[in-house]
Amino acid sequence: MAMTATAGHAHADPHHIGVVIEHPGPASKRIVTAYGFWIFLLSDIVMFSCFFAAYAVLSGQTAGGPKGSEIFEQRNVAIETVCLLLSSFTCGMASIAADVRNRFWFYLGMTVTCVLGLIFLVIEFREFADLVARGYGPSRSAFLTAFFSLVGCHGLHVSAGVLWLLTMMAQVFAKGFRADVLRRIMCFALFWHALDIVWVGVFSVVYLLGSAA
């Protein structure tokens, strides 16, 4: 890395104050890709924040329908949460495996991640189906509207994640750990971890606060 400083200065200036660090030039593709995806994730989180805000505003508007504490089942949520946390872990294992080009552990990690994601989705789907069957669908009240949208939006993201995950497995199968494949795996991992962060918000704000209230 080039440092330009007036020569005399450099010594009298051990902390490099007043030193202009020359920009070294364009970053590598890996960094560029991941950074772009990072920016995308931030924008996705802003989108989630709108649904959170809507939930905060509408959560009291039950219009004579059920309140959160009447319909939330903590046990299910706990299982869902554990699934997602474990899947984040296994996803991390899969990325390490990809980095050291170990196919076996990569497939294993991704498969477990996928299964955990699917379990999460099944539980969520059954919760939704059950609510709708009891007449507590999203059209029942503004509260349920906000609840279904926020949780469902996260669920849709997880579904998209599962689709992506399977595509990535197929791609490693077909193409091996090519540089571009590795970059995509890195983005996928970021995506999956970010969804977990959103879920932390969901279970805290929606389920736990909702049943505490």
Partner: peptide, 24 residues
């Protein structure tokens, strides 16, 4: 814009990337 054309000198980290560590 290929990987090779860039000097490996830059000390940037991608999001989600760890500094070089062993697998363990």
């Amino acid at each position: 814009m290929s990987d090779q054309s860039h000097a490996p000198t830059d000390h940037d980290l991608a999001p989600g990337e760890e500094e070089q560590h062993s697998v363990g």
